[in-house]
Design a protein around this nucleic acid. Structure first.
Ligand code: ZN
Ligand code: ZN
Ligand code: ZN
Ligand code: ZN
Lengths: 168, 168
DNA sequence: TTTGAAATGTTATAATATTACATTTAGAGC
DNA sequence: GCTCTAAATGTAATATTATAACATTTCAAA
């Protein structure tokens, strides 16, 4: 239920009609996880997380800053970068390196790195966790005697919806 | 032959004793490929490529700029960024997104995206092209109806040599 | 030899991120 | 409740990375 239209394929990134639901769930989970870990999800950090989830596409630090300033006159770059550091550190958001942008993660309780599909047409990004990709990465590292600490996978192209709606 | 020491494992990135050889080969290949494609590998572009190959680790744009300035007083940011744009575009170098840095590619004749292993201890980076990783990425994209245009894989950790020499 | 496109020069500025130090806040222990 | 401390935030300055805009030069094709 709660689909946008009849014929359009679902968004690959968020299939719910109401993205605000995603946000509420994410914030609730962030509260939970923070409590469990003894972290301080302060008003500021929570608000930054909320602003990130409010967007359908990955958000840039200075866009967050601009939004913050409207409700918090003395917000400055460190304000947002510190909040982002915390949120990334704890897995509530991922940084997408190829975009210098941030996106919420809906499974912060699981320790992992993001793998992303990014549509260059609509700008949406979807997180994957494909065990085959992970296995191939681990195996490659192992073969080369490399101790893998972190991995970054960012795939760009066009999502199904954009291909369909734009004749390609 | 041409090994560095007795017991040390070879560098995972460049196993030749003389890295200058890598550079000479890369420049010769760049000349070849440029001629074949009707490209202008100008003195400036060639020099930037040479500076990139001269380093054992990925090089940052402003480090290149600083080096260029010593022999070319009016070098400015656009000087280096334009050369880099050309070199990346034509596949002579890859950009490593997670480092904001550039590294030479020794197979510019083959159209591909880099996949990298990056040692966080010695800073060296090695390009891979693991067909299993590629297959897993393609398959994932296909399954989601995504038309894949480019992919980015950057793996960080510690190389065999660093693990051995630093007791881990 | 003209001439037009590509490359480079030049200046300025945009976009992204961090350092350093001061102040405030929130919770632990009393 | 107080006190103390560590964490979080405020604040100013600056570092790093990258691009825009327009002028000039170079180079090869016609
Ligand atoms: Zn995630
Ligand atoms: Zn799309
Ligand atoms: Zn390559
Ligand atoms: Zn190493």
């Amino acid at each position: 239920m709660s689909r946008h239209g009849q014929a359009a394929p679902p968004s690959f990134a968020c299939e719910r009609g109401d993205h605000a639901e995603c946000m509420r769930d994410a914030l609730a989970k962030a509260e939970q996880v923070s409590a469990a870990r003894g972290l301080r999800l302060t008003r500021l950090r929570r608000r930054v997380l909320e602003l990130i989830w409010a967007s359908h596409t990955p958000v840039k630090a200075y866009d967050l800053l601009e939004q913050l300033r409207q409700e918090h006159a003395n917000a400055a770059p460190p304000t947002v970068y510190r909040a982002l550091d915390f949120l990334v550190q704890e897995g509530f958001v991922h940084r997408i390196e190829s975009l210098n942008a941030y996106i919420g993660c809906d499974i912060p309780e699981r320790d992992h790195q993001g793998q992303f599909l990014i549509c260059e047409s609509c700008g949406e990004a979807a997180e994957l966790s494909n065990p085959e990709i992970e296995a191939a990465l681990l195996e490659t590292a192992r073969t080369l005697g490399f101790r893998l600490e972190s991995s970054l996978v960012e795939l760009k192209g066009r999502c199904a919806r954009c291909r369909q709606s734009q004749s390609a």
